[in-house]
Structure formats: C-alpha cells, structure tokens
Design a protein around this nucleic acid. Structure first.
Lengths: 352, 352
DNA sequence: AGCTCGCTGTGAACCGATTCAAACCAGACC
DNA sequence: GGTCTGGTTTGAATCGGTTCACAGCGAGCT
C-alpha cells in the first residue's frame, strides 16, 4: 500500500473535517454520537493508525518511556522490566529498554538517545550515584525515576528495596544456623546496592554481638555467574574454608555454587551459601539456593506508575521515595544439619 | 529549564539560518568548515539535542526499530536482544523491546503500538506461523524480519537457526551414549521451534536405524522452568523411567533436572538430560547441562542488520533468509559411564 | 568588462497531527 | 420575527525539523 493513510483520508471518507476526527480520537465526549460512529467506522474501514510522532510533536507529550538497567542478562532486571512494561502498556505507553552493562559510557549514550526521542520519562538504575546524566535529563524537562536505587534528593522520585535490611536478614540467618566464619562476595566498588547489602551484613554481626572479623569481604569484578565461579575458585584454593558465603546477588551465588559442587565441597554441610534476588534459577538450582527475595515485579510497576503520574501532574507533583521490604527465603543451601544455637527455627521455613 | 532549546536557538546563536544548522547535522559536507565549526560550537554551548520525532515526521524515516520476543524471561531472548541492541545502536537506532509472552493477543497489541510509533522495522518471533500481523505491518510500509523463525515467503527476510539439525545432533548424541528409551519434552503445539527440534530428533532415530518408538513425546504447557519441573515430576512418577530426556529448551531442562535431583535420581547415571539453547545457567547448573548452542548474539545482530539494510535500499532490496548452524556442547548431564557402542567419543568433547 | 560556474547559505513550504477561536445551527424564549 | 444559548463542527495556525529551489558571491575564462 503506497500512500500511508492519514487523518485527512479518514476525514474525507467520514465527510467531516480533520479537526473532528482528531476530536473523536482525543475528546470523544465533545462530538455527537452519530458523527463519532461515522468517524470510527471510517477509521476501521481504512485501517488507520495514529502517527504517534506527529501527535507528539504538536501536543508535546510523548507516550514512550525509557528504561535503563544495569544488565538485561540478569533475570532480576528482566522481571523488573516486565513489571514496567505491564504498567506502561496499561497506560498506553511504549517502553524503550536500554542496557548500560554497568558502563557509565554506554549509560550516557542511552540517556542522550532517550532525550532525543523526547521520551515522557526515564526509569534508570544508575551505574554510579549522583550521576550528572540525571540532572541533564531533568534540565531538558524529562522526568526521572531512580530504579532500585534510593536517594535523598528531593527533586527526584525513587523506588528501591531496603538492601541494608536484606543484607541483615541474610547474615542474621547464617549466624542463627551456627556459622562462624562468613565471607561476603560483593561487586565492583561503585555499585550502590552491593555496598548497602554489605552494610546490612555488618549490622547483623554487630547486633548479634559478634566480633567484626566474623565477616570478611571478597570483591568480585562484576555481578555475574562468571565472576561467582572465579570467586568460588579463589575461595576453595584457601587452606581453611569459611563456613558460609553471602553473595551480593544470585548470579554470583550460582557461579560460586557451581565451583563448590565441582570441587566436591558439600553444600550446605561444608559451606552454606546465601544469594540475593531470589531469581527463578535460584530455586531450580541443584542445591536450591537460600536467597533474599525482592518484589521485582512490583518494583517495576511502581516505578512506571510514578513516572507516568509525575508528568501528568506536572507542577504540583510531590516527589516520592518508595521503599519495599525484602524477605528471606530459606532453602537447602543454608540449612545446616548441626544443632542450632537459637530456637529461631520458624524463620527458616520456606515461604511459598 | 523552561524553554526547550530548538534548532532556531542554535541558528540565532551561530548567526546562520535554520537550514544551515540542519545541513550541519545531516549533510556536513555541503557546509563550509568555518560555518560548521561555528554551528557545532553553538550546539555544544546550548546543549541542543535533536528532536527525533519532528525529524522523523518530515523525513519519513524513523530511527527506531521494534523487537517482539516470546519471553524476555528466557536468557536466550535477552542474549538475542543484546545482539539486536548492539547492532542497532551502532547504526544510531533505538530499540523498543516488547514481550508477547507467547500470547497472540499481546503480540497483536504490541504490533499495533509499534505501527503507531512508525518504527523503521520490526523484528519478531511470531507466536504462530503465518500470522496476519506480519502482512498488516508490511501493508503499512514497515519492514519485517522474522527472528528465530524460518519462512519460505519471498517477501520477508528471516534469520533462524537450523532447529531440525539441532534436534538431530542432540538425539544422535544420546543414542551414541547408549540410550535406548528417550523422551522429548516439547512445548505447546503452536511453537514452531519446538516442532522442528522434534522432527530433527525423529530424523536421528531413523538415521540410526532404530525403531520409532525409541522416542516418546511429552508436551509441556510452556517453555519455562515451572513446566520443566512439572514434566519431571510426571516422568518420575512412572513405573519405568526412560534413560534419557531431550528438552526443547534449557528452561525446561533445568526444571526437569531440579525435579530429578530432588527425587534422588542420579544424572547422568540413571537419566541423561540434554537441553537446548546453551544459556549461561546451563553450564552453571549443579550437573552441568549438555545443550545445543545457538549463536544467539549473532542471530540478533544479523536480524538488526537485515532490517536496517532493507529500509535503506528500499526498492531493489533482495529478501534474504539467513540460517545459522547450531552446535552440540556436551557436559556431564549426558556423559554416561557405560561402555559406548560407537567410537564417536571425539564428538563428546566440551567445546570451549 | 561580461559571463559562467561552483560553492554556500537562505527562506519558505511541508510532514501529520492537535488546538482553539470562530462559525454554525437548532431550538427556546421574548 | 429576532435574539440568545449551548452543543457541534470547522479551518487555520502551529509544533520542530528537513528539503529544495533559488540567491549571492567570488573565481576563472574569454
């Protein structure tokens, strides 16, 4: 079909003016029922579809939002993305998904691209805190919501999960299982989430009245399976093994678990492992992984809802900081057969 | 910053006309070096960013492509998406990622959304073959490339992997390992890829001169971990177990492996398992999974390249059908300890 | 000097929709 | 009959770039 069908063609066929067709589409209540029917019939007959870019040019409001995540390969983020996409499409918005791959340069590129697309808003998990990109976007009138990253800044919305609390949950559980030498595998220094989880882990040690050296830190170069595997190999090469490992996310934990099993070290008897995120593969691992569950889907939905709300109520919009609470899901990888010190066994039940 | 910066502001500052600014951006060669510098300086000073929708309205060509996949939760598709995104951003295009979730209704909705966005082209893994959506898009002048789905239709490009060959590789390997009773876990009936893999599996049986009943089919309701788990439970409830299972993808295989391990059945001694896709989690599973590797990243890159090429060379474009070849990656889950019948042990080496 | 030519830069028309002031119209009311 | 009113519909201006026919100009040639 050579000539694309425009609003003019519809108007011609329905014998009304283009203004009326536009009204049918945007303010159906102001046009008489009979006319409306006629226009809708013409639209259906011609198979007309709105030209969104043209609409946006004139009206100024886009129906597209951008989503920039650290790693699309991480099921955590794909679940968040699903939540975003779901909420966005309910509101009739498209989502442009970008992957920064934990690189500030790529992040910058994607932010510029989204700005040139004049998106309605941007949901972003920034590579570094206090990134200038965010201010840059806001200066251009694009609303920004921080995703999985809390902030104190008053002129930004944010949606996050209490990572510090999550870290505390994980390590408190390990201590209750009788672990005495815990290693935490964290990510690269910049990543805010991993740092917070580490703080929570230290909190747990302190609250239990233990010596700080019960917890040791082992940084990994990235938050993925390969890094977890390498961290596991490093750990297993030691003369004395720790009795528990807390990983900053499940990808690290799965890699580490793999290294452990390969080396013949028993989990959880010789080494307890706790991950973070509770991705689907955590439960399906051969030694089902204890993990800290985050409401990924809700996180995405909430973020999308915020960004849409923000640009609808332009001026009087109140910036909000939503914080979700994580929960511990205990599975085999941390159920130690030894006698427990505490009687907090009820906490160890699997949450269905 | 209240007033958004437009091309007019740049023109004013650089003391040229808007036409010249546009030329600097689009055909830098026709403008004198000195003027060009002046304009670029003004752009940098003002922090001007192009208004893509406006540009698109006039020029007709969008810098956005749509990608519709069956399941963003499947690492196979996220890897494909990464390839697409990489190739697209090299060409300065944005990618709108949509998830059909194996539902024809959602697919239709996304296709309409992409059409209204007037995207440059659409890469799609259709839920069903011969979907009307594709023709509908083409009628509206949007080029379409079938992704991970071969086609005979002459007016469509397609990129696919030889699924039939992959299925053959998997089952030939199992037969060589001495398996006598093989169950193939497939997906829902509509999914083309699973059906082809099944055909390949039958080919392998035939080529090996075995009776057709060596291969049994067990359909799963979806190609995900949960379905694999359920299929595993069904299988394990039987009086006599098969000695091998070939799953239509790795998610199914991981779920099945989980059920197997949980029930105390040994892999591969009691039951060999082969998956498909070779996702990262396959190698990291506790019993590393034998799988059929597909060039996911290349698949995505090729598809993006095709769609961009198609719309650049509008008329004389030759529709192409690219087919990649899969390769078998053998790991523990199918290395049977029994004496081998054949000497094809060399095939069983892990491909680095 | 007069003319052509090539290189630059200009300005207005245009893409497809939205928006809004103004026109239109039928019925109610004076 | 004339005027007013409220509900509909119209037509033109507009959004921010792109494009293209044309103008300006200096150099080279006759």
């Amino acid at each position: 079909m050579k000539p694309p069908i425009g609003i003019r063609d519809v108007a011609l066929r329905a014998e009304v003016s283009v203004g009326t067709v536009s009204n049918v589409l945007n303010r159906p209540d102001v046009v008489a029922a009979a006319t409306r029917e006629r226009v809708l019939a013409a639209i259906a007959a011609l198979g007309y579809v709105r030209n969104e870019p043209a609409r946006q040019l004139r009206s100024g409001t886009a129906r597209t939002i951008g989503l920039v995540v650290l790693d699309v390969g991480n099921p955590f983020f794909t679940d968040v993305a699903r939540g975003v996409e779901e909420a966005a499409s309910e509101a009739g918005h498209a989502v442009i998904l970008c992957n920064s791959g934990e690189s500030a340069g790529k992040e910058r590129g994607h932010v510029e691209l989204l700005a040139s697309q004049r998106v309605h808003g941007v949901l972003i998990t920034p590579v570094q805190s206090g990134q200038a990109s965010l201010r840059w976007l806001r200066d251009r009138g694009i609303s920004v919501v921080l995703l999985d990253h809390p902030t104190a800044e008053a002129d930004l919305c944010s949606v996050a999960v209490d990572d510090r609390h999550g870290g505390e949950l994980a390590v408190t559980h390990l201590l209750a299982e009788g672990c005495e030498r815990i290693v935490m595998v964290t990510g690269p220094p910049g990543i805010h989430q991993a740092a917070e989880r580490h703080r929570g882990a230290r909190d747990a040690i302190r609250l239990a009245g233990r010596a700080p050296d019960v917890l040791e830190v082992l940084p990994a170069p990235a938050l993925n399976v390969a890094s977890g595997l390498r961290a596991g190999e490093q750990l297993l090469a030691r003369a004395v093994l720790p009795d528990a490992v807390f990983c900053a996310n499940d990808l690290l934990a799965l890699g580490l678990l793999q290294a452990t099993v390969r080396a013949g070290v028993r989990v959880p008897e010789d080494l307890a492992i706790v991950g973070y995120d509770d991705i689907e593969f955590a439960a399906a691992a051969a030694v089902p992984l204890t993990s800290v569950r985050q409401p990924r889907h809700e996180l995405g939905r909430a973020a999308a809802a915020l960004v849409i709300a923000e640009s609808q109520a332009a001026a009087e919009h109140e910036h909000r900081h939503v914080v979700f609470t994580p929960e511990l899901v205990v599975r085999e990888s941390s159920r130690r057969p030894r006698p427990r010190r505490t009687t907090s066994a009820t906490r160890s039940e699997e949450i269905a």
